[in-house]
């Protein structure tokens, strides 16, 4: 049985398995906002982008049963990206009539700006963003608000350390230390999610 080298429960099996809602939840928490953002970047409005994100996830959930773990690492993500891309383009095409009535439809934009096509690189970037955000969200409750803020204000919002220390009423040493501790945890979590998501 060379085509079934591994019988362990894969992510895909788990995602497709309705008795494992947790895997699906994590999956959608990462990919749904990613697709939403891609759609927004292509000019869709909030409600349309949200619809589209839902549709894409639906497509993925149906197609996931077809995926066969045969290829090297990372293949699943590429496969996913391809599906997402097709789904986005399809959705935009289907929306043609409605959009066209509005005059400046998304499809028009798409046709007028072929170079602004949703590239796989864009998709990869949004997937990575999705993983980062999901990681941040999931570790956040492990830290006290003030520790978290030391990280957020400086590493994410770019506030100078001294200013953040002032704002938080902490020493600069504490801010340096806290934000590094969270960065480490974030990195570990991102890697953990990446590993799980690329598991075939």
């Amino acid at each position: 049985m060379p085509e079934l080298p591994d019988t362990r429960q894969t992510l895909l099996a788990k995602v497709g398995d309705s008795s494992n809602p947790e895997a699906w939840r994590e999956f959608t928490a990462i990919y749904r906002p990613a697709v939403y953002r891609l759609a927004r970047r292509r000019g869709l409005q909030d409600a349309d982008a949200d619809d589209l994100a839902q549709q894409v996830l639906l497509v993925i959930s149906r197609k996931i049963a077809d995926w066969r773990p045969t290829s090297p690492q990372g293949a699943f993500r590429r496969w996913l990206a391809t599906i997402a891309r097709h789904a986005i383009i399809n959705a935009l095409t289907r929306g043609h009539n409605v959009v066209a009535e509005g005059g400046s439809g998304v499809l028009q934009q798409l046709q007028n700006q072929p170079d602004r096509d949703t590239s796989l690189a864009d998709i990869e970037e949004e997937f990575r963003r999705g993983v980062f955000r999901q990681a941040a969200e999931s570790i956040r409750p492990e830290f006290q608000e003030s520790t978290w803020n030391a990280f957020w204000l400086t590493a994410v919002e770019g506030l100078p350390i001294e200013e953040a220390a002032d704002t938080l009423g902490k020493s600069t040493g504490t801010v340096y230390a806290s934000r590094s501790r969270i960065m480490r945890r974030l990195k570990d979590k991102v890697q953990e999610l990446e590993a799980r998501q690329s598991e075939q």
Binding site: P33, Y36, A49, R129, F132, R133, A155, V156, E157, G158
Partner: peptide, 12 residues
């Protein structure tokens, strides 16, 4: 972290 975590115009 500084690139991916801040919210921007494309967020819901």
């Amino acid at each position: 972290a500084s690139r991916f975590l801040p919210t921007d115009d494309w967020d819901g």
